[in-house]
Structures are given as C-alpha cells and as structure tokens.
C-alpha cells in the first residue's frame, strides 16, 4: 500500500464546524474572559482561519465525530498520562543508575489505524511513552527506537508491547 492509496474522503461540513469550534475555543482560552466584544472578534477570526485552512482540512477526516467517541478519548487520555509519568520515572532510573542499563534497538511495529491523523497521534504517543521513540512511519509500519529491547523480539511481540495499549483506545475515535 502506497501513501497515495490511503483513503481520503472529502472533508464535510462537520469537519469544518469542528475546526471552527476548536479555533474559537483556542481564542477564548487566550483571551481569558467572556467579554462580548472579544467573543464577536473571536467568531470572525475563527471563521477566517477555518476558511483559510480548507485545503488542509482533509487531515480531520480521520476523526470520528460522534458522542460515542468521547469515552475512548477519555480512556486514551488516561492511559496516555499514566504512560507519560511511567516514561519519566523509567528514564530517570536509567539516567541515574551508574551502570546505564540500555539495550537499544530499532524495531518495527505494525498499526491497524488507517488515517494519517490516527497514525500521527499513535506515533506521538509512542514517542512520549517508556523507552520508545518513533523514528519513521511508512504506511502501516512504524520504525521505533527502543531503549530496552528484549532479545529475540519479533514484529508481533513488539507490536503487542508498544502499540496495543494505545491502539485499543485510539480506534474508538480515529480511523
């Protein structure tokens, strides 16, 4: 499968609306108050930004916009924060221990996620979790640099160890 053959449906109205609300929320967060004039200005600016970024809107088509996607999103965020803290404790332990325990290797993992956005989020999550750094994404295969690779790992075991815990939640809200 080449990059060109990734299915990219045309972004619809709902994706535009999603981006509009996102930009508007960002504006309100930066303004930091609920002034009427500020809100009106934000509404106009968000509309301009949304229209200007229409050519790039297709990245959002990977997103499943529905109420049912909310629970997987929250589960994913929970998993992610736990993994982030673990990653740091793990890294602190490695850095501070005198023997510098490392078994680094570059391994391949597979993903079932189809959309560019889904793969982007997965790659970012892998980078921020214990001992792994995404080096490259080639279609459904992610190249991952792993600090502590157990000897004798193959594609199945690395996929299980690195991607599965995120993917099971991610597939609830991205394609």
């Amino acid at each position: 499968m080449t990059t060109k053959s990734i299915q990219r449906p045309e972004p619809g109205f709902v994706h535009g609306l999603f981006l509009y609300l996102l930009v508007f929320a960002l504006w309100m967060l930066l303004v930091g108050n609920l002034d009427t004039a500020e809100m009106a200005a934000g509404a106009v600016v968000a509309l301009i930004v949304t229209l200007a970024s229409r050519p790039h809107l297709s990245i959002l088509t990977g997103l499943i916009i529905s109420p049912a996607a909310l629970l997987p999103l929250l589960r994913y965020l929970g998993t992610f924060i736990v993994a982030l803290v673990q990653a740091n404790l793990d890294m602190a332990r490695r850095v501070l221990s005198p023997s510098l325990p490392l078994q680094p290797a570059v391994v391949e993992v597979e993903t079932k996620l189809k959309s560019p956005l889904g793969r982007l989020i997965l790659a970012n999550s892998i980078t921020l979790t214990p001992g792994t750094l995404t080096v490259d994404v080639q279609d459904q295969v992610l190249l991952v640099h792993w600090v502590d690779c157990p000897p004798g790992s193959d594609l199945a075991s690395t996929t299980q160890a690195i991607t599965s815990k995120f993917e099971q939640h991610l597939k609830g809200f991205v394609l």
Binding site: L84, V85, N88, M91, A92, L128, T132
Partner: peptide, 9 residues
Amino acid sequence: QAGTKAVTL
C-alpha cells in the same frame, strides 16, 4: 529519548 520525555513532563 531522555531529552524529550523528561523535559515534556
């Protein structure tokens, strides 16, 4: 790896 993770958290 060390830089990214530790500095992010």
